[in-house]
Structures are given as structure tokens and as C-alpha cells.
């Protein structure tokens, strides 16, 4: 019993850490999704945030300036993506691909230009992300204390953002109009409002959260690896659908992903299975979850 929980607590603790980038990207992507746009650019936006945050953090020695620049660059890329899609009326899917491709090409070209390598770039002078300190009695809550506390501040910022996004989406005029845009843009036009404005806002919000997600990836490692996002943006998109397009649903879906990845990290060290299979596990589990969900939904609909 006790040995069980001594394994499972760090497993869940790591899951909470790992899920954060998924959750951030998913929450941002939710705003575009609700505005009626498929956002496959999450991956590229995250990558831009990852690269520029660490480069600026290293250059200035200031962590927060670095993160801010990462977020800003991700938002700028989102602005490019949004402007071309909405103003030039381009296909959102292909401009999303373009954004991913641009980000992956641009980060490598720039890395090569600045650091003369296309491989892993280690940074020495990156400060650690501050960890939230909580009063001792909270930390000592059995199990939960160990799981919930001791993460870096981006984790808690993310939780706050989930809450905030739920409030914005369901309680404010902006949220009402954003959802209206996604359901029936014609209605929004007939009221003299501009659907594009809400869609662009959604895209920019996804740029913001993806920038933060990317920053967390590189800053935690104190290194930049080409394609460091490795499909996280796509998984975040899946989380939006599995989470039924609600902030809390996305949080649950992200947690499941976090748990599978955390488990495969653990299994990699402990069990003798080829690492490629373990890396494939999150995808297999996700696809299985997705199909089971579809079967369940289907059987309910036809009952």
C-alpha cells in the first residue's frame, strides 16, 4: 500500500507539471475553437514562444523579460496567422500549417545564425523558475499536499488562467459574442458587430497562452531543442475536443495526457520495453480514448 503511493505521488506530481503546456495551449485554442476557427497553429505558436523566451532570457539574464518576449513573439506570429487568414481570406487549415512550418524553419535558421548549430543549445545563465512557497500546514496535507504544491509559478498561473477563461467565456459580453460568432457568424454581422474581430481576438489569446506554454518547455530545461514542442500543440487540439470545448474539460483531458506521459517516463526507466513504444503510448492511449468516447456517444445517441 505505502510503496504504491510512494510511486504514484511523484507520478501524479510530474503529471501536473507535464500537463501544463497542453493545458495552456488547449485553453488558448479553446478561444479560437469557440469563435469557429480550427487552430492547428498551436504547435508553431508554442515553438516560437519556446525559442524566443529562452534566447531573450539568456541575453538579458532576466527570466521574466525572457518569458514576456517569448509570449510577445508568439502573439506576433499569431497576428500574422490571423491577419492572413481573416484579412486575405485564406484557408485556416493551410495557414495553420504554414505557421507551424514557418516557426520550425525560422527557429532553426535563427539558431544556426546565432549559435552556429542546428542541435541542442544549452544555456548556462538561466535562473530557475520560481516555485510557489505555501505555508507548512498546506504542504503537509497528506498526498494532496505533495501533489498540488511545490510546482513552479507557471503551473499556478495556468490554473488561474483556466478559471479566468471560464469566467470570460461564460460571464462577459466578450465571451457571449465570441461563442455567438462560432455558432452563427451571420447573427453577429446582423447586429453590426464584426465576427473577424472576435476571431482575431481568439487567435491572439491562443498566441498568448502558447507563448507561455513554450516558455515553460525551454526555461525548465535551460535549453532549446529544435522541434521541442514535438506534437504538444496537436495533443492540445485533441484535448479541446475530448474536453468537450469547456475549460474544465480541457483541464481533465490534459491531466490524462500528463499522466500517460508521466507514466511512460517512469516506465522508460523501470520496465524493459523499447523506448519508441513508450513514446508512442500517449498517442495510442489518446486515440483509444477518443474512439471509446465516440462509441459511447454513438451508443447513447442511437439508444
Amino acid at each position: 500500500m505505502s510503496s504504491n503511493s510512494s510511486y504514484s505521488v511523484p507520478l501524479v506530481f510530474n503529471a501536473v507539471e507535464i500537463m501544463t503546456p497542453f493545458l495552456l495551449a488547449g485553453i488558448g485554442g479553446l478561444f479560437t475553437e469557440l469563435a469557429g476557427m480550427l487552430n492547428i497553429a498551436l504547435e508553431g505558436l508554442m515553438l516560437a514562444g519556446a525559442f524566443f523566451s529562452i534566447v531573450f532570457a539568456a541575453a538579458t539574464g532576466n527570466l521574466f523579460l525572457g518569458i514576456a518576449m517569448g509570449v510577445l513573439s508568439s502573439m506576433l506570429l499569431a497576428l500574422l496567422f490571423g491577419t492572413i487568414t481573416l484579412k486575405l481570406r485564406a484557408n485556416v487549415f493551410i495557414t495553420g500549417l504554414a505557421t507551424n512550418l514557418f516557426a520550425s524553419g525560422f527557429t532553426v535558421v535563427l539558431a544556426y545564425q546565432l549559435f552556429h548549430t542546428k542541435g541542442v543549445i544549452q544555456f548556462q545563465n538561466i535562473p530557475k523558475l520560481p516555485v510557489l512557497v505555501v505555508p507548512d500546514f498546506l504542504q503537509r496535507i497528506p498526498i494532496l499536499g505533495d501533489i498540488l504544491f511545490g510546482h513552479n509559478i507557471i503551473v499556478y498561473l495556468t490554473w488561474a488562467l483556466v478559471l479566468l477563461s471560464a469566467i470570460v467565456i461564460y460571464r462577459t459580453p466578450f465571451g457571449l459574442r465570441l461563442r455567438g460568432t462560432g455558432i452563427n457568424a451571420d447573427t453577429i454581422v446582423s447586429l453590426g458587430l464584426s465576427p473577424q474581430k472576435y476571431q482575431l481576438a481568439g487567435i491572439l489569446i491562443s498566441g498568448f497562452t502558447c507563448g507561455l506554454a513554450g516558455a515553460m518547455l525551454t526555461i525548465r530545461l535551460a535549453a532549446f531543442v529544435p522541434e521541442i514542442t514535438s506534437g504538444r500543440g496537436w495533443i492540445a487540439l485533441v484535448a479541446i475536443y475530448l474536453g468537450n470545448k469547456t475549460p474544465f474539460g480541457i483541464a481533465v483531458a490534459s491531466f490524462v495526457f500528463g499522466l500517460t506521459e508521466s507514466f511512460s517516463n517512469y516506465a522508460q526507466g523501470a520496465i524493459k520495453i523499447p523506448s519508441d513504444f513508450i513514446l508512442a503510448l500517449p498517442y495510442v492511449i489518446t486515440v483509444a480514448a477518443m474512439i471509446l468516447y465516440a462509441v459511447w456517444r454513438h451508443s447513447r445517441a442511437t439508444r
Partner: peptide, 22 residues
């Protein structure tokens, strides 16, 4: 220059190829 400028060139084409306004 490094090979990845191919990705950037391709992304430019991706961005514009379906742009109705053009």
C-alpha cells in the same frame, strides 16, 4: 545559409496560396 530556409519558403507559399483576396 542552412537548409531550413526551404521550410520558410514553403511556409510563405502556404500562407498565400489560398488567400482569396489575392
Amino acid at each position: 545559409v542552412t537548409f531550413e530556409i526551404a521550410s520558410i519558403a514553403q511556409s510563405f507559399i502556404f500562407y498565400l496560396v489560398t488567400a482569396q483576396a489575392l
